[in-house]
Nucleic acid binder design. Structure first.
Lengths: 358, 358
DNA sequence: CTGAAAGCGCTTACAG
DNA sequence: CTGAAAGCGCTTACAG
């Protein structure tokens, strides 16, 4: 049945009414008699009428659509959050029957041009930006375009727009504190390129954590790499090849931490016993690492939902600066953190009790 | 600058032309003089004019939008593919300047009603359905609606629509063959609920693999559970608690396989030495499992791109049945497969050479 | 309580 | 080569 789906005109004709009346009946205008309202709705249901949204939105003057800007892909399966985030966003939007558009910068056009086109073409009422740079031109662009947006994360100067973020600096202070309490004094840092604000924040936290614990900061202990497992492996390799390698390593993401575990294993170093490793993200997969990865877990379950609600509020007219929400990450101790060992035995290792369990 | 973005009328006025002429100039109608075409485009660029897409699409009669139906969320980070898939889809759509909508069934409305509303409201020109059931009502619905769609996966009877899938049956024959060659004769199967077609296919492959290798089929060796790591752990527990436990286990997903590794570890059984485990998916994370997970890897990198291209072709008028593409998964040997061991020593285990490397 | 009309911002035959 | 007009399918003041 290739029904060219019924439109208002057809429905009105069917009812012997005018489109104007039918439209108002469907939209529950009180000036339409209850009787006809019912009759119209029944007929609409029966004929399977659905208002054409393009037409409706053109008429009411809002696209009723919000866009999520995909972070650039870095390696395979590098975006474990995206699905969950979209689910949360969609949940918020579903409540109003709004649509969720997903966009990635068209390679041939560029990030900014893509965004500008998107908003100028009237397709979206708001935008979610993720993984911002320290100084992210997308933020300024959106501001100059006067289009509502919310950032998942923050930029360096984050006082004049809406964002939802996890306190990475605090998290790394916590991680370093934890390691210091375990006796570690040489703690390495594996970071991501510092144009990303999250990378800078976490580095700041690391540095603050060191000084808070009276530990010297050794530039050699700071390694920056791409935030993939391979990046982590490479960085950890450099760290462990130092004359005085660290006894503990904090990593800016769980993926990098997994890569770090690789580097340690290939050197016959047992993570959590010989060298401690703490990641960041709280990826579910970390449970299955070898050994299970200790990590600073961010409360990601509700990020999408919250971002959606914030964005809708701003679209409704709320001041963006009302929405600057900082969550805390918390230490999830699995098995890659442990007390510092005095003997630097990097020889043949045995499986410890601990490692076997969980 | 809160420019109420310029529209055609404004642009036309600015140029001293009529909207009709300006529109045709922008769309490169040959009957407009090259000179004015240039002049119009220059002005459009300068004023930052972008045609309102809602209006344009209403006029040209197509939403120029395609929708990806999110699979229902199963546990945290359970959808590692989604991001990559969306990226591929977006790439295909970007080439035509089409939009990608993401939709999840509105809980309060239901899957089918959500879809029906979506297509009847003229918002989408095509749909991507993923993870279909054996007998998936969404397929029939889309057919009766006469709306182009492509399925990522297949249903039981898959001859009359377009799909892109990986041959799960073949993959499990391969996995069983591999294990049989290693000497295993009691091979367990950890599957997902059989209303999912992928679950049935992989079970079929397992059964075929057994008979192909002259192995008896023991119902006790088949365990069905939710396809999460916890599901895998539970199922593997049941398997290993059998009087005659299997010496090898194939799992319908990598997540279940990771859960299986947990179950083995908690019983002091070393995967790959005492009991072999083969997963399915080829998740990147499997490399970091303990030990690294052997798996049937599906070539997922281009799925999204391919699905997008197929869907666009169908929208362009191609016959859906022209697009029924079956890919092969291939065995990625990491460290959880190994020859069957005679001694069923489930006591204290040592780290084998193998397990330490990679 | 219902209808006739204008408008949202485009595109596209149809004239001239 | 350009303009005037109708139409895409809705919504919403404005009459009556």
């Amino acid at each position: 049945m290739g029904n060219k789906s019924v439109n208002l005109k057809a429905l009105a004709a069917h009812l012997g009414l005018t489109v104007s009346t039918v439209s108002r009946a469907l939209n529950d205008y009180p000036d339409i008699s209850l009787a006809t309202r019912k009759r119209v709705k029944a007929a609409a249901d029966q004929l399977g009428y659905r208002p054409n949204q393009n037409a409706r939105r053109l008429s009411i003057g809002t696209p009723e659509t919000v866009c999520y800007l995909m972070p650039r892909q870095i390696g395979p399966n590098a975006q474990p959050f995206v699905a969950q985030l979209l689910a949360g966003l969609g949940e918020a939007l579903n409540e109003r029957n709004w649509d969720l558009l997903v966009s990635q910068a068209d390679a041939s056009v560029g990030d900014l041009a893509s965004i500008e086109r998107l908003v100028k073409s009237g397709r979206i009422a708001g935008l979610v930006i993720s993984r911002p740079l320290k100084n992210d031109p997308r933020v300024k662009l959106m501001q100059s375009l006067g289009c509502p947006f919310v950032v998942h994360g923050r930029t360096e100067k984050s006082d004049d727009y809406a964002w939802y973020d996890v306190d990475g600096e605090d998290a790394f202070v916590t991680a370093v504190n934890h390691l210091a309490r375990l006796g570690h004094r040489r703690i390495g840092f594996i970071g991501a390129p510092l144009q990303y604000q999250f990378a800078q924040e976490r580095l700041d936290g690391y540095v603050r954590g060191l000084s808070h614990n009276g530990l010297d900061q050794d530039p050699a202990l700071i390694q920056i790499a791409e935030f993939t497992d391979e990046g982590g492996t490479a960085a950890a390799g450099l760290l462990m090849d130092l004359d005085e390698p660290p006894t503990a390593i904090v990593c800016v993401t769980d993926m990098m931490a997994l890569g770090t575990l690789e580097a340690l294993h290939s050197r016959q170093i047992m993570p959590g016993r010989d060298v401690s490793v703490i990641g960041y993200d709280g990826l579910h997969f970390g449970k299955h690492a070898h050994p299970p990865l200790t990590t600073m877990a961010q409360p990601q379950a509700h990020a999408g939902r919250r971002l959606g609600d914030i964005l809708l509020s701003i679209i409704d007219g709320a001041a963006p600066t009302k929405f600057q929400e900082l969550q805390r990450a918390n230490l999830v101790q699995r098995s890659t953190d442990g007390p510092v060992t005095t003997s630097t035995s990097t020889g043949q290792t045995h499986v410890s009790e601990r490692e076997e369990s969980r």
